[in-house]
């Protein structure tokens, strides 16, 4: 009933697909969280016009399923790139753009929206007095933000970011539908010829569980290390 030969044969191919999944997750998280922090700071400081645009962006991203964002990115981006290429007088070969870029773009914008909400609540959880204390010792606003407020906000944000990242790893499985050969798509491809679905998906499940487990532990460790920034924070 269970085809062990198939399992032995397909394990290397599945393992080769793990870096694709992780690369998408890291790229989307790195770029998305930076953008999210920017959005959080803009909305926190109520920068006129931009902060309203950000609010609409966040609401849209949180209301639209990942799979639809992927489709929109996949079908809209090539046109944008092509038209840009024409405007600077170059014809861009769209087939040269790897599908993984479309997936990373959609995942990144999604991460930006969700992480901005996490950063926003973390920033407001840092006691106002911290900022005042910085000013009183002569720091500028950006110094105060980078040296004092952000480390404390990060310590508060990490548990939520951990959940967000694990959701992101799971979300990368949808990149299958825009033609990225990550873990899920590879499993599907391997299973198809002889219909070895159960073997393929049980292996896939185990791989995702291991990835989740490892990142869960890593974020826990990170949380513990950042605890030293939490003393005196969030008195509110």
């Amino acid at each position: 009933m269970i085809n062990f030969g198939f399992i032995v044969q397909s394990v290397p191919a599945l393992i080769k697909a793990i870096p694709v999944t992780l690369l998408m997750a890291f790229a989307a998280a790195a770029a998305g969280w930076l953008l999210g922090l920017g959005i959080a700071l803009i909305r926190k400081n109520k920068v006129p016009v931009i902060s309203q645009i950000c609010a609409v962006f966040v609401s849209f991203m949180r209301g639209v399923p990942m799979i639809i964002l992927l489709y929109i990115s996949y079908y809209a981006l090539p046109v944008v790139v092509y038209n840009y290429g024409m405007s600077i007088g170059r014809e861009i070969d769209l087939n040269a753009i790897p599908a993984v870029l479309y997936a990373v773009l959609a995942l990144m914008l999604d991460q930006a929206a969700y992480s901005s909400e996490i950063f926003r609540s973390a920033l407001s959880a840092v006691d106002e007095g911290q900022m005042e204390a910085c000013y009183s010792v002569g720091m500028t606003k950006s110094q105060a933000l980078i040296r004092i407020v952000l480390p404390q906000a990060m310590a508060i944000a990490v548990p939520n970011l951990s959940g967000l990242f694990l959701g992101l790893v799971k979300g990368t499985s949808l990149a299958y539908y825009v033609g990225v050969y990550e873990i899920t798509a590879t499993a599907n491809l391997l299973a198809m010829p002889a219909l070895n679905f159960i073997e393929a998906y049980v292996m896939t499940t185990i791989i995702y569980e291991i990835i989740s487990f490892i990142f869960n532990k890593l974020f826990r460790g990170c949380e513990n290390r950042l605890k030293r920034f939490r003393a005196g924070a969030s008195a509110a």
Binding site: K170, F197, I198, Y201, V202, T205
Partner: peptide
């Protein structure tokens, strides 16, 4: 922790494509 670790898409494939194979067995 199992349910939080598995992507919904993989769960769908596992149940929709995999489970009938086991049950048929």
């Amino acid at each position: 922790s199992f349910m939080r670790g598995i992507p919904t898409l993989v769960l769908i494939f596992l149940l929709y494509l995999g489970l009938p194979q086991i049950m048929q067995g």
